[in-house]
């Protein structure tokens, strides 16, 4: 690992001013669960790190019936997984978090750090996108809100400016007659995900008709992938097994996976078909009861 200068910010304001000062050579450090490995492998070698992990003001989970949920970017994965509030109102997040790396990583790693690392096999982004997440980016110049689905641009790349910090994630209140289901596929239980998907389904109250749907996937494209055509096929239709299967096939055709040591591109597409089918069915059943 190369040497670097180290600053620990004591407030968001100080963090913003440090990052604007060192934006060309610096990197923001949150939990560092990906960053430190990258530094050790010399894949990146910033000359300065701005440590924001200690910022209490970005470590919160707050819910309001009207405006929904706000999660501070420095909330740990473990805090999200274990939050009774999230377990009750956004259970899919809690379930998804159980699959993020290991307990040790979830204890120290933060949701904001995870999103900013923009790993295409990351789990939180697809679930959050399926729930309609927005994020708040702040800098010394001000702040902006962006839909999470517009945040990612390429492998390990986002729209975040060098002087910006991801401050919080916002979710709308849980929608009526809606369920979101997370499903993953890996060779070993806690292994690298070959595919994972989060599927949101809203049904017309008291019927089998799908009012709205969103299908988001990881590990099948450089960024979290929203398979819009597949979701469109479901909207306004009665969800039969045949239709779900067709939609899952469509989802597979919308993906553009690559081959690596864990699976070939072709096989990933096959798994997409199965996983999306199963996730839609499960979300549909749950939405009817929601």
């Amino acid at each position: 690992m190369k040497d670097f200068e180290y600053f620990s910010a004591s407030s968001l304001q100080e963090a913003c001013s440090l990052i604007s000062q060192y934006k060309d050579v610096g990197k923001v450090l949150a939990g560092g669960q990906s960053l430190i490995t990258l530094l050790r492998q010399k894949l990146i070698s910033p000359t300065c790190l701005i440590d924001i992990k200690g910022l209490k003001e970005l470590d919160f989970i707050e819910f309001d019936k009207k405006s929904g949920l706000r999660i501070g970017a420095l909330t740990t994965h473990r805090a999200i997984e274990k939050s009774p509030l999230i377990q009750e109102k956004y259970n899919v997040l809690s379930e998804m978090e159980k699959s993020v790396a290991s307990v040790q990583t979830r204890n120290w790693g933060t949701i904001g750090g995870n999103l900013c690392s923009a790993d295409p096999i990351g789990d939180p982004a697809p679930s959050l996108i399926a729930l309609g997440a927005k994020i708040k980016l702040v800098s010394a110049k001000g702040e902006r809100a962006v839909a999470l689905e517009e945040f990612f641009t390429d492998y390990f790349t986002t729209i975040i400016e060098p002087d910006e910090i991801l401050a919080e994630i916002q979710l709308p209140p849980p929608a009526a007659n809606t369920a979101v289901e997370y499903m993953k596929f890996a060779t070993i239980e806690a292994g690298i995900k070959i595919v994972s998907t989060s599927v949101a389904v809203t049904v017309e109250a008291g019927s089998d008709v799908c009012k709205d749907a969103k299908i988001v996937m990881s590990a099948v494209a450089p960024i979290p992938l929203i398979t819009k055509k597949a979701a469109e096929m479901l909207k306004g239709k009665k969800l039969t097994d045949d239709l779900i299967e067709e939609a899952a096939k469509m989802a597979a055709s919308e993906t553009d996976p690559t081959t690596d040591v864990h699976a070939s591109a072709e096989y990933r597409k096959e798994i997409v078909k199965v996983l999306v089918k199963r996730a839609i069915k499960k979300a549909f059943e749950k939405a009817k009861k929601a």
Binding site: I188, E189, A190, I192
Partner: peptide
Amino acid sequence: VDYEIPRAFD
């Protein structure tokens, strides 16, 4: 990470 061996759950 890429050479996977069983963990407790497997």
